[in-house]
């Protein structure tokens, strides 16, 4: 509740500082692995296609970049259908 009030009064979400942080997070992740934002989609499609050729997928697969410090990792979550 307190956090909510703080946000409302400081109008934090809309600040240009927050906007800058969001844009930097995205652009630095892409810069560090030397890839465009298109790569995400390509990766997701290809990974899913590969898995799907062996096992049946159920639900929505998710592929994300996660960053820890200056390192980046791929976080893949693909729900598989049980027999």
């Amino acid at each position: 509740m307190f956090e909510f009030l703080k946000k409302v009064f400081a109008n934090e979400d809309n600040s240009s500082r927050n906007k800058a942080n969001d844009r930097l997070r995205l652009v630095l992740t892409h810069d560090r692995i030397g890839a465009s934002s298109q790569l995400m989609e390509t990766l997701q499609e290809e990974i899913i296609a590969l898995i799907a050729s062996h096992v049946e997928i159920e639900g929505t697969p998710e592929v994300h970049f996660i960053t820890e410090g200056r390192r980046t990792a791929l976080d893949i979550s693909i729900p598989l259908k049980g027999r």
Binding site: A10, N11, E12, S16, R17, A20, L24, R25, L28
Partner: peptide, 12 residues
């Protein structure tokens, strides 16, 4: 709220 803070820069 109109400039990146030191904490923000450290995070990035």
């Amino acid at each position: 709220g109109d400039m990146l803070s030191i904490e923000d820069l450290m995070e990035h």
